[in-house]
């Protein structure tokens, strides 16, 4: 008897080293053009202001009038691979006017390339901004969990490529699968739970600041202003 299958992913951010291998592997697997991404790794740096710093190091800083000002914060670098969450209740499917977006029985959210009219509505509706218009083919595309590989019994390209095995792919309905074990044993989170789309990509060790799109974004994109209207 074939077991019930619901594909899902666990991204163990304690293992992630921000190497972008998943991002490049995906580009290779799907011939994703430049300027659009099916998966990408967001990287941030965060730390406390000196007055909040947990440590105080007596720096002999030649630039500081008061040396105690140049104390060091505890800082960390955080990574977040961001991909389609293959939601249980995908808003992109709900709003597609021609029903080109659909969810398979095993939970993978797909786009029918022969039906999609490229109206961009799903792109506008997706709270994770994972959909894009392929500038070469003019198709709306997104991560499809490498459905051709999954059907052939292989893990998605990003999972296979991850040098630290931070990404784990498997059947969420199977209690003995590694994803289920991780979800039941570790403290997992999803992105934007408030959106009630019930994402099926779980993160272990997710930090609120890396998950928050609004932290530091204006500074980061200041040089891209010209691309806007």
């Amino acid at each position: 008897m074939e077991k019930e299958v619901r594909w899902g992913m666990v991204v163990d951010l304690r293992r992630c080293v921000g190497c972008h291998a998943c991002q490049v592997a995906c580009k290779a697997e799907h011939e994703v053009p430049l300027g659009v991404w099916r998966i990408w790794v967001k990287v941030i740096q965060k730390g406390y202001y000196p007055e909040m710093a947990a440590v105080s190091l007596p720096w002999d800083c030649p630039y500081c009038e008061r040396p105690e000002e140049a104390r060091y914060p505890r800082m960390q670098t955080l990574f977040l691979p961001w991909l389609c969450n293959h939601c249980e209740r995908p808003i992109c499917n709900t709003v597609c006017p021609v029903g080109a977006a659909y969810k398979r029985k095993d939970g993978i959210v797909l786009i029918d390339p022969h039906r999609c009219i490229g109206c961009n509505y799903c792109r506008a509706a997706c709270p994770y901004n994972v959909r894009f218009a392929n500038p070469i083919t003019g198709m709306i595309q997104k991560c499809d969990f490498c459905v051709h590989r999954v059907d052939a019994g292989l893990p998605p390209a990003c999972v296979e490529a991850c040098p630290t095995n931070a990404m784990v792919f498997g059947n969420l309905r199977d209690p003995s699968s590694k994803v289920s074990q991780l979800i039941s044993k570790e403290k997992v989170q999803v992105l934007k739970q408030i959106m009630a789309t019930f994402p099926q990509v779980y993160y272990i060790g997710l930090d609120k600041d890396v998950a928050d799109p609004l932290k530091g974004w204006e500074k980061h994109f200041y040089h891209k202003e010209y691309e806007r209207l």
Partner: peptide, 8 residues
């Protein structure tokens, strides 16, 4: 808290 986006 200081947050600096390195890559997005």
């Amino acid at each position: 808290m200081e947050v600096q986006v390195l890559y997005n």
